[in-house]
Amino acid sequence: MDNLQTYLYISAILFSLGLYGVITRRNGIAVLMGVELILNSANINFVAFARFGGMNFSGQVFALFVIIMAAAEAAVALAIIINVFNNLDTVNIDDARELKL
């Protein structure tokens, strides 16, 4: 609880789970959830190094920027997924392989 490694282990496991979700899921929104897990694991690392590695508050500011980026990414990705659904009637990312209809 009071050492760096514990948090790094947690974040490594969270990263692997997110990676597994990104690889295996077929639904675009589920893939997005995997990406959110990966971003969260990166954030845990940033805050852990801020707490234990002497980065102090700079680590937390970087995690803040990651959260801002995640919000922008989620908004744009969902707009794209809804567009794909309107055009193809599916959110299965394997079916969306053509650039032009």
Binding site: G28, I29, L32, M33, E36, N40, N43, V47, Q60, A63, L64, I67, A70, A71, A74, A75, L78, I81, I82, F85, V91
Partner: peptide
């Protein structure tokens, strides 16, 4: 950071994701 996480991730991104699930 915990407060920001709850406000932006749970209040924003997760709600957006559920919106996406409902709309698709």
């Amino acid at each position: 950071m915990a407060g920001v996480q709850i406000v932006i991730y749970i209040g924003g991104i997760l709600v957006l994701l559920i919106f996406g699930i409902m709309l698709t």
